[in-house]
Design a protein around this nucleic acid. Structure first.
Lengths: 236, 236
DNA sequence: TGCACAAAAATCGTATGCAATCTTTTTCGG
DNA sequence: CCGAAAAAGATTGCATACGATTTTTGTGCA
């Protein structure tokens, strides 16, 4: 567990240290520096971030609300290990919400937003071109960030938060059940969506988003495997 | 603040006392025993429920995640006072999500579910018939419970949680900005929705739900008023 | 009387301590 | 040598303690 090498610096006026720790841990979970099932003990988190157990505990509680960690009474917190059923629910939720978000974003998008999308797409492309596990992680993260950017453009704080949770959980799911790298394919789809936004073709943006989600889910192998079940049974 | 007269008894296998307190407070907020803006100090909550500040604080943190209380650093927690803009976002989110939930529920509904819906509708009707503030509160709660029941039938735990949050926040919004009692109207619409579910007319159920939400929102008066703004400015 | 400023009280943020629970290791009988 | 019970160790749940910040109260001066 070598997190905490990013010093969660003066990064914005953080009301809470707990929140900063949560953000750090979430990033670590989302891009797989922390594998599903990993135990996150209050004490360890506390020492790593140099805070007391109290605040470490608060951070873990937040992550548990987001579904990124699962806590068991008197046992502790673990990075979530979503079941295939949970994975399906995550994607069902996204299929329901994201096309609507695309439409909302389409109705409000500005040229500045388009520029931000272009920058985001460039970054995605860079990571896809690179090799190595670090680039892979960054690629997953960037791909998620595209969807979060779209959600922020849509201008609904509640839906944005829902999407933050869904995107984070999707990353976990993809890490666990992802088959190939649909990455390149996903990237081109992102590009198409931005194109639709730019030409204010909201209906098309919405449809593209729906298909995009379908493609991502289609790449998953959600058959129950002996491996995870066994690991689960043995308490990991 | 005379809550805690419901003893949150041996009610189910309670994993956490904090969760029990959260549920209690949430109910109190949703049916207006706690008015928006009310201060919820950690100490007071703690003594009321006979726990330490630690666990009271955890409960308040949960409510803050759900958007039912707003916490200000070094100042404490207050029952949320949603702005008109927030209110709009709550209903925009519901318009996006609930029609889809109706469709999902329609595809999975069993006869046992239908019976549960009927029972729920009966209860709603009872409270509408009654007079007095207590019945009013129960009526608001029952109306929300209808939507939660629908969400549970839909069988997606994630969407169900989202709906729990949205319904709770809606109750706050209605309490703040509700004009009349659309209650009777809402009740008849609920009945229609159950009818559509029973006849497996998913498309109709979805449309009815959409209109239902529109009707609820149409009953709100979301113009910015001097009153709340002033109270807000004066720190309440 | 009214206002500014200071002291007091209340409340929050956080660390730490203790009991309860779970996990691991040790020990003992077969 | 192996398995089961017991002890030791680790970790969580919760309460409490203390400094920091905010709010309220009290007091003196204009």
């Amino acid at each position: 567990m070598n997190i905490a090498d990013h010093i969660y610096s003066t990064d914005s006026a953080n009301q809470d240290r707990a929140q900063a720790i949560r953000d750090n841990l979430r990033d670590a979970i989302v891009d797989r520096r922390l594998a599903p099932g990993t135990k996150l003990s209050e004490g360890e988190v506390g020492t790593l971030f140099d805070v007391s157990r109290t605040v470490a505990r608060a951070a873990l509680q937040m992550l548990s609300f987001e579904g990124l960690v699962r806590t068991e009474r008197n046992r502790g917190a673990f990075v979530a290990n979503p079941s295939p059923e949970e994975a399906r629910q995550v994607f069902a939720s996204r299929r329901l919400i994201e096309p609507g978000i695309a439409i909302a974003a389409c109705g409000r998008v500005t040229s500045a937003d388009i520029a931000a999308f272009r920058a985001q797409l460039d970054e995605e492309g860079r990571f896809i071109a690179e090799r190595g596990p670090t680039a892979r992680r960054s690629e997953i993260k960037a791909s998620g960030d595209f969807h979060l950017l779209l959600a922020s453009v849509a201008g609904n704080a509640i839906l944005q938060r829902f999407m933050e949770e869904l995107v984070a959980r999707s990353s976990l799911v993809i890490a666990l059940y992802g088959r190939s790298g649909v990455s390149a394919c996903g990237h081109s789809e992102h590009t198409e969506i931005v194109g639709a936004l730019e030409s204010s073709d909201c209906e098309r943006a919405s449809q593209l988003m729906l298909h995009h989600i379908d493609h991502i889910e289609a790449d998953l192998d959600l058959r129950v495997r002996a491996g995870p079940a066994l690991r689960e049974a043995l308490n990991f």
